[in-house]
Amino acid sequence: MKQLRNHANSAAALLIAVLFALLLRDPVWIDVAVVIGIQALIALSVGLSFGQAGLLSLAQAPFAAIGAYATGIISVHYGGSPLAGLAGAIMLPALLGYLLARLVIRLEPLAVALATLSLAAIVEVVIRSWDSVTGGYVGLSGISPLAWAASPREYFWLVLLVIVIVIALYENLLASRFGRALNTLRHDRARAMADGVPVVAVSSAAFGLSAAFAGVAGWLYAHYVSYVGPGDLGTHLSISVVLMAVIGGASYVLGPVVGAIVLGVLMRMLPAQELQGLFYGGTLILILLVARDGLLGIAEPWFARALRAIVPQPARVAPEDERRT
């Protein structure tokens, strides 16, 4: 786990992002890439809440929806700038996620998942019923595009940039005391409590932060599509992003991004229409069968070996250090 979990992540992400940005030219694939990138951000939020904090959330897409609506409302009703929208898109989901987590964090994991599912339903009802603000069932159309990322290609760069920033934040977080507390907590709550980790506060903060990641994704979505409706960022997507995170490897920083790319590209290549679900479901099961720690779990030993071949082996480190990372 170590090789892919140290600071190499954001460097790798940056490298891949630059490669993508330079090489991807086809307008349709750029469009696909933007949406995959947005989903990858939501999947990253699953990586944080599920992969690190062990909280399975089925409300990540609704958090993104809140972000999308926050900026949409500011843009459509008040003519506000997208940056004001960004602030709303980060803070609202973070606050809601934090409060929900405070309420339910003590429950067992499945109950937490159910609570998030209920929250998702509540968010959806509020969105579709609050006609004067959210546009009700019809949704909000005419959300202003970003002046500084007007073409799909520029928007693609923006999405890549945001992903790299989020990955860097995520990585720093894991290296901090907070991150270590989170890790102990996931493996052994009793141990964490004994260590004096404020369990509820730490888990809730992680959950709030994860909701904020999703909110940013929603912000990107709203300004890209220019329309957001009540069914757009719903439970189906919540489940998809969990799948992306798990398939890529939820406990690896880059796992959710890998999963999002693999599933996103797969969705494009599978024959569409009626039978698509069959291929999708079948492929999903196959990947789960083959890759138990996600695709990065498979790649890791191989990657580590390659790295050892290139980089001279450092002196053997003490076991304590190994356990810490």
Partner: peptide
């Protein structure tokens, strides 16, 4: 999660 995959596949077969 794999049961979810199966669910999607069955829904698709029915459709």
């Amino acid at each position: 999660l794999s049961s979810f995959g199966l669910a999607v596949a069955i829904g698709s077969i029915v459709l």
